[in-house]
Structure formats: structure tokens, C-alpha cells
Design a protein around this nucleic acid. Sequence first.
DNA 1: TATAATACTGAACAAATGTCCAGCCGTCCT
DNA 2: AGGACGGCTGGACATTTGTTCAGTATTATA
Lengths: 211, 211
Amino acid sequence: MSSRPTKRQEQVLDYVRRHRTQHGLAPTVREIQKHFGFASPNAAASHLRALQRKKLLYRHPGTARALRVTGDDRKEVAAIPIYGDIPAGFADTREQRPDGCVYADLDSLDIRRTARTFAVRVRGDSMTGAHILDGDLVVLELREPNHGNIVAALIDGETTLKRYLVKNRRPFLRAEHPGYPDLIPARELVIQGVMIALFRKPKDAGRPIEP
Amino acid sequence: MSSRPTKRQEQVLDYVRRHRTQHGLAPTVREIQKHFGFASPNAAASHLRALQRKKLLYRHPGTARALRVTGDDRKEVAAIPIYGDIPAGFADTREQRPDGCVYADLDSLDIRRTARTFAVRVRGDSMTGAHILDGDLVVLELREPNHGNIVAALIDGETTLKRYLVKNRRPFLRAEHPGYPDLIPARELVIQGVMIALFRKPKDAGRPIEP
DNA sequence: TATAATACTGAACAAATGTCCAGCCGTCCT
DNA sequence: AGGACGGCTGGACATTTGTTCAGTATTATA
């Protein structure tokens, strides 16, 4: 019987959430009091009581900083391995060595837990026309591609990111940048993954450019 | 100057880690004491001191349950609130209502824990030249922008994503799409955040079509 | 062998923190 | 009009909790 929080209660809940992610621990009653400018710790405490009543918050009585926002626990965070370079024998996943992981929640990625998901660091500018830049991290899912999907494919022993197209029942790959020709596979086309998400961290995020 | 922990210290560190993942919060000194059967809280406390000296643990003095294992921070996933729409009075964070959250690890985002970070859903195509598309999720940090940064700014009561430029010591905003004029602020320029990351989930990604 | 570091016991203090009681004011609903 | 509820002030109390001082025994370490 969890009901909706009021505006104020939402704010409190948000502050708890934020405090947890920023400082790694939940705030105390008096920290909440201070943040909202209450004159009494009871103001914060009663909000917590209300949130608890509405099942939006859990806590251990008598325990310091024992606040836990209900939804946050259930968030399933997937560790997506990053393969900087995909070698030929991709089928054997066990031999892969990820260069770290991206962590993203399944919700926002809409990932099925059964699906094989991985990420690749993009090299080159052959897909800038599709707004995929050098250095971008592309999250891929192992499945059959559809016409128009962006895929990681194996061409001549190298893996590249291209758009997957079908013409006259024959699939081929297209780069999204002037000067790159279409790639029509001589033998068979090995699709290693279909792009489902993109993650970019601009290199110039903190750096000024020439005026 | 971080050296190796002793066997016992390793056990304590392990217990702290386990307690955090199991209960969502760090143990107190006395909980550690109880777990190891110490007769004095000082036994646990001195272990924590040693671990701190070896840079394997961080804590806030005088704060309850403020233990953080050094390596674990990197795996920590931050909940970044998504503000679909940024109203005028942004300075008052308390009135914000996030439309859910993105979850990303601090490492890959290079987020400072102290920094105020949030995300905005991009609307419109004024930044396609900078490879930022309609529907993209842009992660922003609250800080002073540099020349060339992409920022969320408040213009005429509306928030837009633009490139921040400075000419003759006067800052202005530039869209990255043909046909959009530069925005030269009449009064003052309110910068709400500087882009530090981008997250895209293609709309046509999840459709499985049978051939 | 000296010296430091580890690994504790034992007691106690002070700050941090959760909690409770009493009451005020306004809004919404019946 | 009445009552339930949200939002808050003000004060106080009892734990919880971090911290410190003093001391013992064992194990490295130079």
C-alpha cells in the first residue's frame, strides 16, 4: 500500500538519494534538518516517518544513517565489459579480456538480462555521419541485425562499426562518412553485435579551445 | 605510500566491504568489535586507524558509519537525476523533481563526488553539428564553463544546450546547426551546467523484425 | 638486541544521533 | 463545524558512536 509522496517528501527523498551517491552514506536526521533549514530535527524525522509509512524508505530504528530508499536497492546494475579490440575468434567469449567495464542500469538501457551485451571503443571517423565519434563507447547486443541497424561486423579480420543494410536480400555494410565505400561481403558477413546504446565522454570537457 | 594490510587488517577490511554490500551502510566501530569478539571498541578502532594509515580506508572524523573502502569507490554507481525540463529558478535545487535517474559508475564518467551532477534530455536538433541528437541524454556538471564547452544555459526563461564561446571577453552561445544564429545575451548568461558525458539509446535499436 | 609495529584489554568522555512529547498553523475532505 | 493530515517549532532525553588515555603481550624489523 505504497502511496505517493508529497512535494516536500519527494524533496527529502531526493536529498537522501543524492547524499548517498555523493558521500557514499545516508544523511543523518540533523543533516536533513540543516539542508532544509528546519529549526527542529523533528521536522526531518517526521518526514522520514511519513516516507516510511508510504514504503518509500526503509530504516533500522536506533541506527545512525540507516536510511535506504526503496527503489534504489532493486536497481539492477549491469557490468558491461569493454572490448577495446575484438579479435577474430569472437565466438569464444571466454578468451576475451575486457578493458574494464561500464556500469549501467538495465532499465535505462532496456537490456534483457538474457542477452549477451558488451561494449566497444570506437576508433576512426567512419561513422561520424551517424553521429558516432572516435572514442565513443558503443554498447552492443548479440543478436540478428535489422535493416538500418548499426552493427559491429567482422571484415577481413578486423572489426568495424557500420550500418547494416539489406538490398535484394543481400546484406551489406555502409559507412556514414563521405569517401567511404559500401562494403559488400565476399563470403559471409559476421555480425558481432547490434548497437543498442552509446556513451560519450568528451575529451575537451574541461579544456579550452583556441578563440 | 599505501602498503599492504596484515592478515587481520584484511579481515577487517573485508568485513567492512561485506557489511556495506549486505546492509547498504558501513558498520560502526562497535559492530566490528562485536563481529570479531573484541572486548574493547578500541581494538576495532586501531585496526581502522592502521588501514587508514595505509590508505586502504577513508573516513570522516566524528561521523557515524563514515567508512569507505578505497577501491570500492570506483565501482560505485551514481544515481544521476534526469531533469527533463529545467525551470527558471534553478538555483533552488530543492524544487527540482527528477524524471528518474541514470545510473553510471563514477569512474567512467570521471565524476567528482563533491560535484553536483545531473542529466537533461535533449530536445531539438540545434546541436546535431556537435553530434548531439534529439533524445540524447546529456550529463552535466555544475561548474564554470570554458571556451568551447557545451553547456546548458538559461535564455529567455528556457533552457537550451549550446556551445559556450568567448569573444572579446564577452561570452555568447552558438548552436551547432545551419540556420541557428549565435545567441548573445542581453543581460547575463546563466550557465546551468557543463556537459561531461552523453548517453544515447537509439530509438530503432530494440525492434526485432523477422525476415 | 633494541625498536617499532601489531594486536589487543579496560575504562571513560564527549559528541553525534535517533526519538519522543507538546503544541501551532494551515489545507483538504466530509 | 469537525477531523485527519501535512508541515513545522521547541525542548529534552537516552543511545549510539567516535575517540582518547593507559597498559600488556606478541611479533616483526633493523
